[in-house]
Amino acid sequence: MQRQVLVQHAHVVPGSGPELPGTDVLCTDGVITAVGAGLAARAAPGCEVIDATGLTVTAGFVDAHRHVWQAPLRGAGADMPMSRYFTEILGAALSSLSAADAGRATRLGADAALNAGITTVFDYSNATLSPAHTDAVVDAFAGSGIRAVVGHGRFDADDVRRLAVRTGRVTGALAVLGPEYGDWDETVAQLAFGRDLGMMVSAHVGGACVRRLHDAGLLGPDLQLVHLNAVTPEDAKLLAASGTAVVVTPTVEAVMGHGASAYERLADAGARPAFGVDVVINNPPDLFEPLRDTLRTMRLRSGSASAPAAADLLRAATLDGARAVGLADVIGTVEVGKRADLLLLHGLGHLRGDRAGAVVSCLTALDVRTVLVDGHVVKRDGRLTT
């Protein structure tokens, strides 16, 4: 029996073309099967109907880099420098984490993400300390209803292989120290290992390694580089040309001393950067904050009230986010054939024109009314259902 959801009378921001006022979205067995006006006649008996009159529908947000297990530590590091982060968070707190703790912490982080309209998260998971920890993390994501890519943060080859064969909403990746924080030869071997398994490999970098990775033929869309605060415009072009996935976390980078965000340098080079929350010890668990922070920073630099256009940034939290986690063919736009990961946002029903820019410039997590992941309603009328 088909499982259908019909979202009716919405203002749809598809992310792949002009905005569509007065539009329905039909989802069948987790897939968007039609986008247009008057789709009720195509709905099967038993179809769930959601009245989206006055609401704005976008693709679900993609958080391309977060350490999800740190959710219980929210607010614990408002003035914490990186040196203390390594010893107190990645040292003391992480070492005390049991498998049950890892599961509960991950579930809390997943719920916070869903509540803020994040339907997919790339979890750079330091919490995969043992196979039992890994199972707890995976089970937590599965129970929450979120779509997750679990980046295994401890190089246990057998445990990583278990993640590599996962399909569906919760899949696996490899999270490594990378050449700027670890050994070069080890990074090369880990990248080869991940690629042999068909997994994306994620690493934190400042940017100094980009040229060396390029010269060694190691850049590519299955490599995800996070932060890149020191990347040069020339090296940003190498990343763009190779299709390497790039992620920035502007609010955390600013408060923890990483340096100025590389978003503009990467975007100017055509590298299509995505956004990440990163850590919640000093940062809200949503993507509205980095979206607006980036808009303000770029407008200050340009001296213009309209450049860049606010609407242009929405793609970084949707389609470019999907691309940065290896799921661009699956999610990131509201169009036929994509999985039905959708946000229904309120607060903009009075606008007659396009709304994408207003989503970026004016909305917050409080405006996330209803959330669908894989065609399942995981937040309804402001309350999580799972």
Rank of each mutant, 00 (worst) to 15 (best):
L55D: 02
W69Q: 12
E48R: 15
V68N: 02
G60F: 03
F61D: 03
S83W: 09
D79Q: 12
V49I: 13
M82I: 15
A64Q: 05
D79V: 08
S83D: 15
A76V: 14
A71K: 01
S83K: 15
A59H: 01
D51C: 07
M82S: 12
A52H: 00
M82C: 13
D63N: 08
H65M: 11
A64I: 10
F61L: 14
I50T: 01
R66I: 05
S83Y: 06
H65D: 11
D63A: 04
A64H: 02
V68E: 07
A43P: 10
S83G: 09
E48Q: 09
E48A: 06
S83Q: 15
V57W: 01
V62L: 01
P45M: 08
D51T: 10
M80W: 05
R74S: 04
R66D: 12
V49L: 09
G75C: 14
L55C: 01
R66W: 08
W69F: 05
E48D: 14
R66K: 15
V68Y: 00
L73R: 10
A59M: 10
H65C: 07
G54P: 03
R84K: 13
R74H: 01
R74G: 02
G46A: 02
S83V: 14
G77K: 11
M80G: 01
L73W: 11
H65I: 11
L73T: 11
V57C: 03
T58L: 11
T58W: 05
R42N: 11
T58Q: 07
A78E: 15
C47Q: 08
R42Q: 15
R42P: 05
M80D: 07
G60M: 12
H67R: 07
I50E: 03
P81H: 07
F61T: 03
G60R: 10
H65A: 05
G60I: 09
F61P: 06
L55Q: 13
R66G: 02
A71I: 11
E48I: 08
Q70H: 09
S83A: 15
A71R: 10
H65T: 10
M82W: 01
V62N: 04
C47L: 09
I50Q: 09
I50D: 02
P72E: 13
A59G: 08
Y85T: 12
M82H: 05
P45C: 09
G46M: 11
W69R: 01
F61R: 09
V68A: 07
A71H: 01
V49T: 12
V49M: 12
G60V: 13
H67A: 08
C47G: 07
V49R: 14
R42K: 13
G46D: 13
A76C: 14
Y85Q: 12
A52V: 05
V49H: 00
